[in-house]
Amino acid sequence: MTKAKKSLVCWALLSPFLLVVLFPYATMLSTSLKQKDEIFTFHRTWLPRELYLGNFAELIFEKGFGRALANSLAISVGATVLSLAVAIPAAYALTRMRVPGKGALTNYLLITQMISPIVLIVGLFRMFAYFGLVNSLLSVIIAHSAFFMAFAVWMLQSYFATIPKDLEEAAWIDGAGRFSAFIRVFLPLCLPGIVVTAIFTFVNSWNEYAMSLTLLRQVTQQTAPVQIAFLTGTLYQIEWHLIMAATLLASVPVAIVFASIQRYLIGGMALGGVK
């Protein structure tokens, strides 16, 4: 079988699944470009009447969706920074030093990964309420960091392990202190791994729903996914054209970023996380 023929077969076999994956995107795109009267009519078509961008404008300028995006961005950046800030030293210690109780620690992190935040959501809510942090973006940043950190530690660990130890040792002998060797030699070498981990954490935080829903109870603080879901909860006619425009805005940039690290996930994370 030639490669061309094989390609045809492969694509044909994959096509049903690909169709299902892409169907919602087509829906988002088509609907977000339609005007309201095009949706609530009997004769509907895939193609919008014209390339109408008014939905996006209305969303941002009238519905305050810009603020939801800003909230999401603030939370995701905050959670990424915080979880990397704690995960990098931990992963460094776990790969480079003799850590007492290392096995127990690894198992503990693993188990925290398995516990969904929702199982603990009541406890989480009460804890942040106690500290007066409910309705503060900070609460979600902290919660996201705690739940996404273990994965970051694993991913970083598997990257860190690929950096030969004698590079740092050489730096020490050359006169670099431990910190300086870390900054000048170690960090530049694992930057790609850190970037991939950061993106992964960012995307996870951007997409998280349950904690944001529970901990942020005012409309002005909603994140993008929460607000989108919130918009479907109205008693009146649901404004699908706006909602689809919102999902498009909130998902496409993130999907592109995510696609850019896809190939690292297959080799690195799957195996790193599994081991």
Partner: peptide
Amino acid sequence: PQRRDLAMVFQTYALYPH
């Protein structure tokens, strides 16, 4: 090792790749 003022050549050379 930082303050012993010795130099070492490693078997792997340990050159900084970047």
